[in-house]
Amino acid sequence: MNATALHSEAVVSDETRASAKSAGRRFGALVVRLGAIAAFAGIIFYFVLLAPGFTSTFNLINVVEQSAILGVLAYGMTSVIIGGGSDVTEGGIDLSIAANMGLCAAVYATLLSMGYGDMLSVLAAIAVGMAVGALNALAVVGLGILPLLATLAVLNVAAGMELTLTQNTVVGASSPLLGFLVSGSFLGISALAWALILFSALVIAVFHYTSFGLRLYAVGGHPEAARAAGLSVPFYVSFTYVLSGFCAAVASVLTVSRLSASTPGSGELLLSVLAAALLGTVFSRRFVPTMGGTLLSVLFIGLLVNGFQLLNVSSYWVNGVQGALILLVVAITSFARGSEGSR
């Protein structure tokens, strides 16, 4: 009896200590988060003051246009992280997304160059992108492989298929749709920039203003609770991977329009896509990925590259700064997670 009482007392005091500690950590996390946002704002402010031509409308539209492909891919990545949970090792992640875009671009450009029309070629690209997404879903949900490993394997499959299809060459492409994407504009904003604006509006609406989006967050945040509430966790998780494949296909059409061809080396984009999706969490109070946060970080990365060039700072710095920011954000995120984890 006595021993039990003592024991339970100890537990109580441990709990109070833990909650005091977690409150402290949460305050700390808040300070660091605001600090990170202030650093972002500081960098932009610095560009506004010192980079010649940075604030001109023409330049800003250029940045939005340059961010379109990265943005669409980052939405795919964000959706997978939302649905699979943001644990860095076991949560949702889609490492195949950039390679998938390369494969879709190759399919799209090859079909166009063989004389098939836009309609069929775009549909084929979307079908391929979603099929690769479905393969990810099968590996992760069906076979229970860690997303990090499953999507890494699919990355190799997609990259290999792209190489087989294009023999690692540049496949030139032109079509009415590509022509429109390159030179079309409305209200002074180019078609590519519009593509990002409209796609952003769509994903933000679905993920943050529908009950479907809420359920995705529930599935990613606490799968057991979601299951207990009657949600089909496998369905929602699979959905995010297929959506990610769809995003890769959409991005592939944009990339072919921008490069007038499908070119090898799309896989290079993966780091930036991951950076955008991870950096985006800083803009949410609970350090969860959000579509709006992803959009802000995509634009931030675009502005960073642009500002460096306008200031005539070597582009070699961009990668370093991008890497440092990822490290900072991941550190902050795990710091904040620590407070939730200890509860």
Binding site: I69, L259, V305, N306, Q309, N312, S314, S315
Partner: peptide, 25 residues
Amino acid sequence: GEVIALDAGRKDQQQIAQLQTLIAQ
């Protein structure tokens, strides 16, 4: 003269973005 030196690191996307910004400069 003054040089604005841009190395795209073998990435077509990056070279296009750099050229686009360069035109604006």
